[in-house]
Design a protein around this nucleic acid. Structure first.
Lengths: 172, 172
DNA sequence: AAAGATTGAAGAATCAATCTTG
DNA sequence: CAAGATTGATTCTTCAATCTTT
């Protein structure tokens, strides 16, 4: 694998081992899949360590953030949360239940369509979210600090292209 | 968020909601963290669906691949697997146990250092790996097919930079 | 029926504690 | 004591089945 000046990473090592087993094959896509998984995993680990200080998990903060983004009165449906977080419906139910137990959200039935539930942010939940958002933002910036701003933007542009393919066009 | 010609993805929508709450802040790193997580998640989902046909999980195939890459006689230590897969040592133990139950690997104690275990690929495990490797490779290529080859290479180069920062330089 | 949400079983990861060998 | 690996408790996810409302 010719990386020419750039320091090699662990994926290069893996590809070196694979190459002789697949002579002539193009390993670009395979290497990219490996790197995407590993980078995402590392980001998750850093974020979790940082948030542990505040006794909150990344996914808990993510759910609170979804509700904050909805704007006053800070409520949405589980379906909307599912679209935002890309999980199974069962996972959403359990996340909401956990946060309800912690007193950060509560459920109401939508009067206009009694099949739907409304997940609502409590005052405690909003306060907690506000306290920790800053730390999350700083951590995200610090984890990526090794990349120049322009590189980060280029990554965003390249990954946006891919994300539209994978998640479909944004609804509406 | 100005994406200028490019179709927008769901992360753009999220950033639009966040922007007014953080006036003046640079959201590049935050958007990138979101995209990395979502893309990795989607790749995982596609791979899992494809491999389900063969009754094998992505992580199971990954472990078999680690052993194959080691070359004959197809064995390594749990520590080496941990370095390769970036998991806790407890997770490695359980992965190996599961694959041992399926008859694809077995354990031996390293005679030269009785603290170490050697995880060895069985004939069944090797056959299974060979049967499914092709499908994995095809799936990886297909999932990323929406990106031009040059874009994939650029992503690899950009992510390699980040990975070296996050995982440290490659050992040896 | 179809849409929205919940439940329960099974599988897997983390973390801390433990065991064995050097 | 340090290194390598295992164990057990807890938590979270997926998947399939179920329940309620439209």
């Amino acid at each position: 694998v010719a990386t020419d000046g750039q320091p090699r990473d662990r994926v290069d090592v893996i590809m070196d081992d694979i190459a002789p087993l697949m002579p002539g094959a193009d390993l670009t896509a395979k290497a990219l899949c490996h790197r995407l998984r590993r980078v995402a995993h590392q980001v998750e680990i850093h974020l979790r360590r940082e948030l542990a200080t505040f006794d909150i998990e990344p996914w808990e903060l993510e759910l609170l953030a979804c509700l904050r983004r909805a704007g006053p009165p800070y409520q949405t449906t589980p379906s909307s949360l599912q679209d935002s977080m890309q999980l199974t419906t069962g996972a959403i139910t359990k996340r909401v239940t956990t946060l309800e137990r912690r007193g950060w959200v509560f459920r109401t039935i939508d009067p206009s369509d009694r099949r739907q539930v409304l997940v609502c942010l409590t005052d405690d939940g909003e306060k907690r979210a506000m306290d920790v958002f800053g730390t999350k933002t700083e951590t995200e910036a610090r984890v990526l600090a090794g990349l120049e701003h322009g590189t980060q933007q280029r990554l965003n542009d390249d990954l946006r292209l891919l994300l539209v393919q994978l998640e479909g066009p944004v609804p509406e």
